[in-house]
Structures are given as structure tokens and as C-alpha cells.
Design a protein around this nucleic acid. Structure first.
Lengths: 234, 234
DNA sequence: GCAAATTAATGATTTATTCAAG
DNA sequence: CTTGAATAAATCATTAATTTGC
């Protein structure tokens, strides 16, 4: 059990730096004498309910306004506010069809190259970004797992010969019924970088492509034609 | 309590598509008649232990090789393998100093613009990527919380007047000792996109910058000079 | 029929957990 | 053992379905 939105007022305890700032930064820049705004923010009721969508665009002063004046100006006071597309992605039926086909095909955690390709393809059927694809697979995977778990529990609860206590324990251990998925994921899991590599391409992390025994023939470029041009789908 | 790495062998149940493929894709491309490799993968023992580091670079045929020939060629058979920088980031003392200062200043989950800036700044003191900054804050936040929780538990266990049972329950509710952090995070949490926006800049999600009442003077551009050039630090 | 109210789905984030390098 | 890196679980928040009263 966990508690959320626990309304507690407190004053910041981390204001005074416990170690000296790095040498190349003037110590005078790190003064914590103007902490009032932060304290006020903390005394504000937690997670105020905002029902009208415009309000969500309002800019709040980030909490770390006590950092050095320089860092503050550069890091705290600039907030990204989307001017358009302020609404969340709403996948079109066609997009969902493709995504589900890929999922049924076994795709679970596409790497960023794959995400780029999928995004580009799905961009033909509506606005979409890479993160939408990424999130879709995360959520779909998790929720399919949930569904399977529920179904298995239902099956067990009617057919199992286990004593009730054991059953209950098994239900509480939420890992016990997702072994199919776990198996599916296991050999796929070995260390990958997903969202950052390629996207944050780095000189020290240049990537090369390796072709692993494709057993298919020469029919290609129909579903996801290989176009390395910028996949900025809109 | 949770179980992980429960070794179970199973056969895929999701092989047959339950809905028709999208209209723009030739149905002939979606044949699931060659599922043997996938089934074999599923029967393989879970999470095979790979002890020698080279092995993790080996390219495995992704499990979704049953998708249409086109998608397969494009999405399955191409795997990113870093040719250099195969070692993980090792922060320099100066980098850590700056990061810790920012953390003490209150920064917890920098957005991608902030990450870019920090990366660029820290790049002066050694190789670093955005994801390193991102992960550092994630880990540091989590582990500081762990430390605080442990410390608080220790304090409680020696000073608390609660009966043992209550203490135990309180310990199990892992939210009970991090309310300070929760409060700190609560009003900060309102909808941000972290790793993807800006990075995967999208025409429909163009962002504008809004300056929220900076109460500082004109001392600036010393710690993180505002240079919007590509922050690919190396 | 048709909006307001409610509920169910699901997109988007954060937090917890795990693995492994050094 | 510490901590960088990655994934999975939990959670939050918005949109679509659905219900309900008229």
C-alpha cells in the first residue's frame, strides 16, 4: 500500500549546501537567502485539481529557484510550453492496426532505429512522434501482461486444487502468472539502450548496423521502405 | 513480495492474428507459417547467463521475425551495435561536483533542454552524453531517498514509541517516509515530457519558451552559458 | 436524441527494481 | 560495493465510451 497526495507542509531542509561548490564557480553565486517563494510553494495544497485544459499550460516557477543565479536563469526559468499539439496523441485505427500487427509479430521493445522507422510509417496515417510509439509498446506490453494475469487467475480460481490460502498468496505475488511474458522477454533483455542511443547520437557511441540472418527473400520495401531521410512525421 | 526470473517453458499463444491486417498492407505479407524459430526461443531457458562481455554484443535474431517480410527486413534484422565507447560513463570529480550542486540546489528531474545544457557544460570536463545526466539524476534521487529512508528507519527503531507491529507496518508502506520528497515533487510533476520532446522535435509540437519571474539580477552566463549549438559533448 | 455525469481505456510519467561494470 | 544503465511496475491524467436524466 502506498500513500499519495499526502498533504504535508514543510520547509526545505536542503537549502544549505553541505559541501563546497566546484572551484570554477564563484561561491558568491550560490546564495540561498531568497527561499521564500520555494517555501510558499511547498505550503500550497498538493496537486491542485485543474480541470480546464488551458490551465495546464500555465508556467510554474520550478522549485530549484534557489540555485545560483546563473544556473537559475538558464535552467529554472525556461520552461517548454507546447504551442500546438497540446493534446495527447490519439492513434488512428490504421495506426493501431499496424502497431498491433507488430506486437502480435512479437515486437515488444523496439530500439530507437525501429521506432524511427515505425514513426515514419505511421506518420502517413496521422500525427505521431517517436515517443508515442515507444509509449504504446510499453503500455501495450504491460497491459497485455495484466490481462493475461487476470485471465490466468480466473482460470486458477475455478480449476486449481490448491488450498485457498496458497491461492491467495499466489495472487498476491504478482510475478507468478506472467512467466510466459517473462520468458518472452528474457533473452531479449540483455542490455540495450533504447530511447537515447541514435537519438542522442554521440561521437563516442557511433553505431554500426549488423544484419542477423534474415531468412526472407527479396520482397521488401512495401511496409516500411528504408528511407533514411528525416522521419519527422506530422 | 515479488518473484522474478521464474523459469517456465511455454509455447506462444499469440501467433495467430485475431484481427485482419490493415488494408494497405498486402495480406500475403502476413504469414505466420514459419513460427518454429520463435517457439524454439521460447523453450529456451530463461535469462541465459552470459558471463563474457563480448557475448552481449552478439546479434540475436529478434523474436518478431514472423512479421511480414518487409517489416522483418527493416525492423528485425538491424541491430545497433556500438563500435566504440563500449564502456559506461565514468563521471569525473568535477562533473560530480556540478551535478551534486545542482541536486542540492533542488534539481531532480531536468527536462531535455536542461539536460542539454548540463551535458554541454559537463562536456568540458570529460566525455558525457545526455543520457548520462538523465540517469544520474534518476539514480541519485532514488538512492538519496533510500538513504533517507534507511536513516529514518534507524532513527525510528531507536526512538519510536510505537508498538513493534505498527512500526513494522509503517516500514512496509514504502511511501510513509518519503513524504518530504513527495511534497517536493508534487507541484513539480504537472506534465512534463522529459527525454523525448525537443529531442524528437515534431512540427506539431513546437515549443516556445516562457520566462517565469526570474527574480535575479543581471549576473549570468557563467555556469551554463546559453549556447544553443549542438551540445554533443565528447 | 443529446448533453452532463460517470466510467473505462489508454497515453504519458515517475518510481522501483534489476543487472552488471569498475 | 558502489553506481551507471535499463526495464518493469505503478501512477497520473486525458480522452473515448457509456450511462443517465430529461
Amino acid at each position: 500500500m502506498r500513500l499519495h497526495h499526502f498533504h504535508v507542509a514543510y520547509l526545505d531542509k536542503m537549502a544549505s549546501p553541505s559541501s563546497s561548490p566546484p572551484s570554477m564557480i564563484s561561491p558568491s553565486l550560490i546564495n540561498s537567502s531568497t527561499d521564500i517563494p520555494f517555501a510558499l510553494h511547498c505550503l500550497r495544497p498538493l496537486a491542485p485539481k485543474i480541470s480546464f485544459p488551458e490551465a495546464r499550460k500555465m508556467v510554474v516557477l520550478p522549485e530549484f529557484a534557489r540555485v545560483s543565479r546563473n544556473a537559475s536563469r538558464l535552467l529554472n526559468c525556461t520552461v517548454q510550453v507546447p504551442t500546438s499539439g497540446a493534446t495527447r496523441w490519439n492513434p488512428s485505427p490504421d495506426q493501431i492496426k499496424v502497431l498491433e500487427m507488430l506486437y502480435r509479430g512479437g515486437m515488444r521493445t523496439p530500439n530507437s532505429f525501429q521506432i524511427e522507422q515505425i514513426t515514419e510509417e505511421l506518420g502517413k496515417y496521422g500525427r505521431i512522434e517517436g515517443k508515442n510509439v515507444f509509449y504504446w509498446f510499453q503500455n501495450h506490453k504491460a497491459r497485455e501482461r495484466q490481462k493475461q494475469k487476470r485471465a490466468a487467475l480466473l482460470t486458477l480460481s475455478t480449476t486449481s486444487s490448491l488450498p485457498p490460502a496458497t491461492m491467495h498468496a499466489a495472487c498476491l505475488q504478482d510475478g507468478v502468472l506472467e512467466k510466459k511474458e517473462a520468458c518472452e522477454d528474457a533473452w531479449r533483455r540483455k542490455r540495450r539502450c533504447r530511447a537515447w542511443e541514435d537519438v542522442h547520437g554521440d561521437a563516442a557511441a557511433t553505431a554500426t548496423e549488423v544484419v542477423a540472418d534474415c531468412t526472407d527473400d527479396d520482397v521488401m520495401l512495401e511496409l516500411f521502405p528504408l528511407r533514411p531521410d528525416q522521419g519527422k512525421a506530422s
